[in-house]
Design a protein around this nucleic acid. Sequence first.
RNA 1: GUCGGGUUCGUCUAGCCUGGUCCAGGACGCCGCCCUUUCACGGCGGUAACACGGGUUCAAAUCCCGUACCCGAUACCA
Length: 490
Amino acid sequence: MTVRVRFAPSPTGYLHVGGARTALFNWLWARHNGGTFILRIEDTDLERSTDASTDQILDSLKWLGLDWDEGPFFQSKRGDVYRAHLQKLADEGKIYRAFETHEELEAAREKAQAEGRDWVYNRASLRLTPEEVQEKIRAGVPFVWRLKVPDGQTRILETLMTGPANNVFENSTLGDFALTRAGTEDNWGDALFNFCCAVDDAVMGITNVIRGSDHITNTARQTLILNALGYPSPTYTHLPLITKEGKKMSKRDGDADPRFPVSVSARRDRGYLKETVINFLALLGWSWDGQQEIFTVEELVKKFSVNALSKSNANFDEQKFLHMNSLYLKQLGPEVIAERVLPFLEQAGLRLGGSKDQAWLARAVAPELERCKLLTDFPEALRYYFEAPTTYEPKAVEKACSAPETGDILREVAEALKGVGTITQESFEATINSVATPRGLGFGKVAQPVRIALTGRGASPGLTEVIENLGVEESVSRILACADWLVIHR
RNA sequence: GUCGGGUUCGUCUAGCCUGGUCCAGGACGCCGCCCUUUCACGGCGGUAACACGGGUUCAAAUCCCGUACCCGAUACCA
């Protein structure tokens, strides 16, 4: 049987890392099996669903490269399908109208809770005579459709969260749950999540539902619906939850801490690479051999299996995430990163132009690959290429430029540098040594003030690269400027 | 409360199904050392864990029972 899986987000917010991971696992399982990945938007809750959310979810999926084969299908546009299935169940007497008000039920539930009892619907409306029902319908009393849940147990087809209970639910604990919102005979209420979901999974031929384990009890209800409808049940794989500091990571947490946003789009804006997000998310509840942690998407497709999933909650380790991003920065290389860094530079007001073209940027980015961890680190790391330093890092100056002759040294270096045609490792070292050696100084004693002069900082990549990317002329002028600055400020 | 799941280094985890090769492996972090014109990168080394209590067995991280703790679900939301 060919595998058909789906990702079915509700558009009540952005795509968060948990949802992205669910999407990823479904996508991987489809690709691994040469199956079909379907996208379905569960927007039956019109109150909370927004088009903006849908757009952002699709956008994030595209960014991650999780392409879908069918859809997106919108449940809000499939009312006829649900209505037809409801009608069938009504004709067969498997569902019934329940006329209690929301308030009545709420009160009953609270009472039960206060008494420490479990609450399930008491079937009051099921005991109404046909005449009483007709009477209420005529009077226009609003009702919801409830499933007449049979006695006995419901066994769900679970592949992962299997335990001693073997996923058998006592139907009595589920009660006759509601299938629709409140409506009238002329205008039935809209079908609710569980009903739409079960119907769509069946109609769309879903073979394996992969979703968060917070859906387990829904699975029992959906299985009951499927049984009533006479549809076969897909198998279910309930993923362990993603936690952060022990608590379920949900979009309700928002992007409260800007350093650790929960949405995929904010991670992207924060400078995380899509390769990192995919790889890191894959490891949240799945592992290969316990040794390998870096996987290309192709490898993931090949190696991923729902059978290798973990049952315990996966904790989101920010430090490791960040580390993985720095790994990918290096792995992707200067050309790719230069391209991706561009929007971040522009956002920081740093624009290419003149001799600073894309190729130049790749050269400038290359040595920074080892010190930056996020794309957003690059604007600051590269800023000195775009703007000559106007101030120098005080600590670095103190450490390297405290000797009174530093200004003279810099002027000598500038002079020597003028004669250098093209800068190479050798010519640079010769230049520095031509100043250092006569004075009996070590290489670093001269090189470090030069670094500060050029970049304003005590830390940067190799000076040869810096001068190469800056140009000799610009370098000379910066060194002289720093010498002057030292005279005034020391 | 009830139902379901979980519990291995500071952190993320492998191993558990199919007991022995595990005085428990990898990674992040941290700490040393090396490299080095600084920072970083890299290389080498180190640190550190089977929740607790019983049981089964020649042998248990692995199987069974109990306890504790954590997480989730308990809607006319999805």
